[in-house]
């Protein structure tokens, strides 16, 4: 498998040079996540398994 095929099967790698034509904001659903008792919550990872995703988050303060 070559670099391009391994990396971005739809050729994403080579279209980044395209400028951002306009600032389009995402539609879709936003959900707020707050770790109970934490002053701040930082979410960094999400899986896909089983339809009910697991989200991993760090926190500051208790």
């Amino acid at each position: 498998m070559n670099f391009r095929a391994a990396f971005f099967s739809v050729g994403v790698l080579f279209v980044f040079v395209a400028a951002v034509q306009s600032r389009a904001y995402a539609q879709g659903t936003y959900t707020q996540i707050d770790v109970p008792g934490a002053r701040s919550t930082y979410c960094l990872g999400i899986d896909t398994k089983g339809g009910l995703c697991r989200v991993v988050c760090g926190r500051l303060g208790r």
Binding site: I33, R39, C43, L44, L60
Partner: peptide, 29 residues
């Protein structure tokens, strides 16, 4: 935005108008 899964869902965090930091999950339409 800091994380993404196989379903293109995104996670990360945001700052609200009171400078509080919250996690979030975004699901594409």
């Amino acid at each position: 935005a800091y994380g993404i899964n196989r379903g293109d869902e995104i996670v990360g965090w945001f700052v609200d108008s009171s400078d509080n930091v919250h996690g979030f999950r975004w699901e594409p339409p």
